[in-house]
């Protein structure tokens, strides 16, 4: 009678929980979680897109408010800091624009990652869904924001006629590294914050501090050549620079690449260990 007879729900699956929970068994569940989420990529994509759409539902410009507000911020901060630091606007503005837009992505992933599970309590409690979906949702949502802000970057390049050249392509593989890191962060922070409710404010204040410690609004050259080796000590600098430097027409140093990959590997390993251990407990924590 109804058109629904062919909606045979999901492919049949087996949930089998045995009493002896070994590391290997837990790893298999974690792996299965990731694979199931990969199969639900259309769902992840729509969740991320709807998040953006919902935020701007009913507004005239819609998501392009993101573009506009970034443009206004860049214009204002560019003017002020170029004067304060006595910088050549031609050189400084592209740097600042890239930094602010990219930092915006990092900051949002960290802040929203803290809520990746807590905020989805009703969804988590109403049906079994791979936890990876929630983390992917945060990453995709912010990737879309980044996409809208790309317009500002291209705009600044066009106005000042400072195109980065072919080196810019080096930022693409670095971007993949970012996505992996972002995914790891959303899961790690999301699960940690579900368990320990004091973490979000701590993360938030650390992030504010990191904004000033990391060369985001000030150029890394300012530390001077004899102290340049200190920069890669800050994971955020290395990770930021592998994407930013190519877009400014430079090639990041080997040290920056090595440390960025090293920090990312560390983060991913840490997350995997935590994911394997905590995955089954998240629904008890929220």
């Amino acid at each position: 009678m109804s058109a629904s007879s062919d909606n045979a729900a999901r492919p049949a699956a087996v949930l089998d929980f045995t009493p002896d929970v070994t590391w290997a068994a837990r790893s298999r569940w974690a792996y299965r979680d990731v694979m199931e989420a990969a199969r639900l990529w259309r769902l992840c994509w729509m969740l991320g897109w709807l998040d953006i759409k919902l935020k701007y539902r009913g507004s005239v410009l819609g998501p392009f408010w993101l573009t506009l507000s970034t443009a206004v911020m860049v214009a204002a901060m560019g003017g002020i800091y170029a004067t304060l630091f006595r910088m050549n606007l031609h050189e400084y503005l592209p740097f600042l624009t890239l930094s602010l837009v990219l930092w915006g992505f990092v900051g949002a992933v960290v802040n929203e990652g803290c809520n990746s599970f807590v905020q989805q309590e009703t969804m988590i409690r109403s049906e079994r869904m791979p936890y990876t979906v929630y983390a992917v949702r945060i990453v995709l949502r912010n990737l879309l924001v980044l996409g809208h802000n790309l317009v500002v970057i291209v705009g600044v390049f066009a106005v000042l006629d400072t195109w980065p050249g072919w080196n810019a392509l080096l930022s693409l593989p670095a971007m993949l590294l970012w996505l992996l890191d972002a995914l790891a962060l959303s899961f790690l922070l999301g699960a940690l914050c579900a368990r320990f409710r004091d973490i979000p404010p701590i993360v938030n204040s650390l992030l504010q501090m990191a904004f000033f410690v990391t060369p985001v609004i000030w150029k890394p050259e300012l530390v001077g050549p004899d102290r340049a080796w200190l920069l890669p000590m800050n994971p955020l600098f290395s990770v930021l620079d592998v994407v930013r430097a190519p877009l400014l027409g430079q090639v990041p140093t080997l040290m920056v690449y090595v440390s960025a990959i090293g920090y990312s590997a560390l983060l991913c390993a840490l997350t995997w260990v935590f994911f394997v251990r905590a995955r089954g407990r998240v629904s008890f924590w929220i």
């Binding site: 049949a12 409690r125 049906e127 629904s283």
Partner: peptide, 26 residues
């Protein structure tokens, strides 16, 4: 439904599951 995973005892559910637990269904 597999939302809470047991760590004591054995549970096996074979087949595709639909859980209608709260009216808002998430």
């Amino acid at each position: 439904a597999g939302i809470y995973e047991p760590v004591v005892g054995h549970m096996r559910v074979a087949g595709n599951v639909s859980a209608l637990l709260d009216p808002r269904l998430g």
